[in-house]
Computed example of a mutant assay.
Amino acid sequence: MLTRLLTTSTLLPLLRPSSRLMSSSVGLSIPHAKSSLLTCTCVCFDVDSTVITEEGIDVLASHLGKGSEVSEWTSKAMGGNVKFEDALSARLGLIEPSKSSIIECLKIHPFKLSPGVEKFIETLHEKNVDVWLVSGGFRIMIEPIAEVLNIPKDNILANNILHDEEGNYVGFDSNEPTSRDLGKPAALNMIKRSKGHESVVMVGDGATDAQAKPPAVAFIGYGGVQDRESVREKADWFVYDFEELTEVVKGRE
C-alpha cells in the first residue's frame, strides 16, 4: 500500500508548513505594522509585482523583443544591487519605446491585478484611507490600473516617458522623485506635506519600497509575486496574501 512506502523522511516535507502558510508570522514588527494599518491616514502602494502580477517595463520590453536584456536590469534594481536611476536609464535605452508601441502593448497585454488587492484597496477606501500608487514604473501604463481601482490620477507618483511630436522616445523626466534612488521616501514626504498625513504605510515588493521607511511609519512587504529575501528581512510584516491586510483594516473604527 502507498502508506507503507512513505518513510519519515518522505513525510517531513509534507508536514512542514510552507512559507506562504506562515506568512503572518514573518516580519520585524508585526504588531506595529497591524497597529499602523489600523491608525494610518494614507497607504502607498508600489505597482509592479505588487498591485499587478508583472513588471510593466519587462512586459513592454518583451513586446518590443528586448525581454531578456531588460529583465536582468529589473532584477538588479529590485534586489537593490544597482542604483534605480542607472537601471531605469539602461532599460529605457535598450527599448526606446514609442508612444504607439506602449499603447499597443497595453491593448495586447492588459495587466492582471494581484489576487485580493482590489478588495484590500476597496476596504481602505471604505475606511476613508487615502490610497496612492507610488511607482518606479510609468504613468502612461499605471493610469488604466488606477482607473480600475478607483484611485484618482492625481494620486499617482510615477515616471514619465518623454516623446516628441511624432511620438518617438526621447527620454524620461529625471525630475520625478521615483526616477532615482531613494525616490520613494522623497515621494512619500511630498504626499505627507501636500496632504497633511502624519501616518503613512508603504506596501511593496522591492528594495526601493523598503527604503520608504522612514518617512513611512511601517513597511509591509508583499511576496505574492516575487519573494525577495532582502525585502523580507526589512519588512515590519511580510505577507503573501492581501486578504491578511484586508482583515486588519476591517477592524478600523
Rank of each mutant, 00 (worst) to 15 (best):
L5K: 11
L5M: 07
L6A: 09
L6F: 14
T10N: 14
T10A: 12
T10R: 14
L11R: 14
L15N: 02
V26L: 14
I30H: 09
L37F: 07
T41Q: 13
C42M: 11
F45L: 11
D46Y: 05
E54R: 12
A61G: 06
G65Y: 11
K66Q: 15
V70N: 10
S71C: 08
W73F: 14
S75Q: 15
A77V: 10
G79M: 06
G80M: 04
V82D: 11
L88M: 09
A90L: 09
R91P: 00
L92W: 10
E96M: 10
K99S: 13
S101P: 00
I102N: 01
I102C: 06
I103S: 13
L106G: 01
L106P: 00
K107N: 15
F111T: 08
L113K: 08
P115C: 01
P115T: 04
P115S: 11
V117L: 11
K119C: 01
L124H: 09
L133Y: 03
S135W: 06
G136W: 06
F138A: 07
F138G: 06
E143V: 13
V148A: 05
V148T: 14
N155S: 10
D173Q: 13
N175S: 15
P177F: 07
T178F: 12
G183R: 08
A187S: 11
L188W: 12
M190W: 08
V201M: 12
V203A: 09
V203T: 09
G204R: 07
D205S: 06
G206M: 04
D209W: 10
Y222V: 00
D227S: 12
D227G: 02
S230H: 07
S230K: 12
V231Y: 01
V239S: 10
V239T: 11
E243G: 12
R252A: 06
E253L: 08
